[in-house]
Amino acid sequence: MTDHAHGDHATDSTEKTVTNRTMDVVVALAFMGLAAVVMSDSWRIGARWASDGPEAGYFPFYVGLLMFIASAGTLATALFTKHPDLGNFVDRSQLKSVMQVLVPTCIYVGLIFVLGIYLASAIFIAFFMWWLGKYPIAKIIPVSIGVPLMLFMMFEVWFLVPLPKGPLETALGY
């Protein structure tokens, strides 16, 4: 689906990370590992065709098998093709941009379990705006407080749907 021409950047050695072929191989191997897990667990619970139709593991087993075969196919294509796609999977600078979002988001998700979703969201939005957007405090504060507050009103007060809460909310009596 993507139409970026990664090959263009391949020459720039400082931008080099891994090739598309390497990633293809890694992902295909991951698929095959997963397929093996799926097949073994399905075999455990019974994957045969019993007198009254398939057992619980029948479909998952063959799903795993097909996944294994298809990924083996991908693996073989990537390894033995005459025209391997040696283009760069992702440029170093691109990878940096992606990590700029991914790492804070991972920390944010971790923080949800500690601080509750409202406080963690406020910190996350504020950090993001300050770090990537370089906004002044006067703009950061209303957005980073307003959004979680609105969510709080909507979920806790109107819809009565409790979201994960932390020490702050407990202190406030929620």
């Binding site: 698929f31 997963l34 998952p60 799903v63 795993g64 298809a70 990924s71 196919g73």
Partner: peptide, 15 residues
Amino acid sequence: FKVIAAMMLGFALAA
């Protein structure tokens, strides 16, 4: 191959 692998992943997750 990739279409089949992706679809099977969906089935496996659904199970």
